[in-house]
Design a protein around this nucleic acid. Sequence first.
DNA 1: GGTATCGTTTAAGCCGGTTCAGATAACCGC
DNA 2: GCGGTTATCTGAACCGGCTTAAACGATACC
Lengths: 338, 338
Amino acid sequence: MAAITIRDVARVAGVSTATVSRALRGLPNVDEQTRLRVQRVAVELDYVISPSASRLASGRTGSVAVITPYIARWFFSTVLSGVESVLQSAGIDLLLMSVSNGESQLRLPPAPRLRRRVDGAIVIAIPPEDPQLQQILDLHMPTSLIGVSAEGVPSVTIDDVMAARIATRHLVNLGHQRIGIIGGATSAVPYTAEYDRFRGYQEVIQEAGLQVDPVLEAFGHFTIAGGEQAMINLLTQRQRPTAVFAMSDEMAFGAMRALRSHGLQPGRDISIVGIDGHEVSELLDLTTVAQPVHELGRIAAEELLEQITMNGVAQKVRVRQLDTHLVVRSSTAPLSTT
Amino acid sequence: MAAITIRDVARVAGVSTATVSRALRGLPNVDEQTRLRVQRVAVELDYVISPSASRLASGRTGSVAVITPYIARWFFSTVLSGVESVLQSAGIDLLLMSVSNGESQLRLPPAPRLRRRVDGAIVIAIPPEDPQLQQILDLHMPTSLIGVSAEGVPSVTIDDVMAARIATRHLVNLGHQRIGIIGGATSAVPYTAEYDRFRGYQEVIQEAGLQVDPVLEAFGHFTIAGGEQAMINLLTQRQRPTAVFAMSDEMAFGAMRALRSHGLQPGRDISIVGIDGHEVSELLDLTTVAQPVHELGRIAAEELLEQITMNGVAQKVRVRQLDTHLVVRSSTAPLSTT
DNA sequence: GGTATCGTTTAAGCCGGTTCAGATAACCGC
DNA sequence: GCGGTTATCTGAACCGGCTTAAACGATACC
């Protein structure tokens, strides 16, 4: 029952524990014969290193925290799977922590739980003005941000302004003139996706010589229900938009649902375009600006591992923006000139 | 820069490290005055316990692994969020590990990565015949299963036979007589959802005096694409079913897609019912047998924590089956008698 | 006043690795 | 044959808590 320790291996292999340690970790200064013998003994004894002991002695934890406001939502779980695949193959433990978001304030702040526990953190889409993010950054450990950016911190995002421009430009090119927008928080702050997407929308509207009209703007939660409610608001205006840019696919789904319940058909009566490239958007024939979500996670994880290994060596902060592309489906169509 | 240790706290508070240890962990045999003083000093010095040291000395890791074949899929991420909420409030670290599934065989087996690293494991929907599951069970650590069951291991599932019966019965009650099924693996083995759902379907078909007909059975991946392909297979039969039971909502989505591309309308031409209660099923007006997915995770986590704290004390293996309920929407309708 | 009792506190060993200064031995060129 | 390298290996001091046996002090009892 008593677990095998490094001393047992050392004794059986006839070497010191120091040699066993180096042999098993592939460090230099071990004779190849010795290394093989040690490895053989370790396997025979079914020896497994104790992570706690190793961590205590070395000061490295070999684990990374992923901090996210949501776990079950499509974007977040997809990012998470990208992160996981990288960490798994690097042999790093992934600690999952969710933080309280706008809706639930129940959870403890994550920062204290990180200290001495992980070598680095990946933070998904926590807005820069959230004190929880600041607390994490104040820890001064290797950190990568996904979906938002912050001064002096490596981050991986899409070009949100560009994505919104692509979506809006698509609607303009189809001849639409009353183009609405459905978005997240009304009071968006810089460095967030909401802010940039709203900016991209406005830019294109103005460039096209169209009117930026608050009546065409509806905000709500970044969810299906939020999108539905926002679309309902737009539909009850005196003058409805002929096309709507939704800041996320899920909001677009809600918008499409609202259309149907009003007897309208997406594409024919009102065009809808989203951002995400959600799997379901294909199902619903939603035109969308697809973003490489899995990649966001993958790249942020690789970036973080680099920070961790380059520890101490100053390097420039890498801010990466991945490309998006328009996927046209039947939810958008030329403005009918009837 | 040097981190504060328990010795620093002890020195400043004027007590021994043993007392600090007990004071901060709320153990008895500490004078209340002393405890307060120690706590105050700990806060002042901004002391954070070193998990590695604590784990090494105590033998408890304070963490739990969640092992899942998929991270980004709806069912799995929703279960995961349920697990996470419980572990978070219990102050337990959640280690996320994905395992290779039918599609990718790239990952290392999880069992070796668990030893000495976690106090217990939650395993999501790994089929009983998968050697990876057996290896985990052979570790003889506290374990809870979700979505499958195995001899002598606590598990949380729905009553899959019953769920399938409810779905199929619903179709029978609507007057359908040619009722097809779209499912996962053809060669399902006992203790899996696929197996039981297939059984429930067959039972009701037979009880209704209908013919169990292999021509009405189509299998594929447990995905949208899999469901689509399976439905296409059913549609190309000489005699089409008038209703189809899909083993998951995502397969049902695929089936609905296949219907539309054949110019058929779910509910009017062919009825479709799924199992899951996926958020999107409301969007698509899919009739479904809803299961409490978040609860599955929550309850399995609570069960595991109980195992861990009751460590050693023999207790009976709890096998829980949560209730499901039918949600009727417009994808199912009475058999038109035209 | 002496002793038993009980709650509180401490000293010191231990958990199981990592690491570094220094020992050993083999090999080198001169 | 000798000082100097170089590659390999070991002893022992950590890392930072936990835990147990023993000490301590105060009260209680006889």
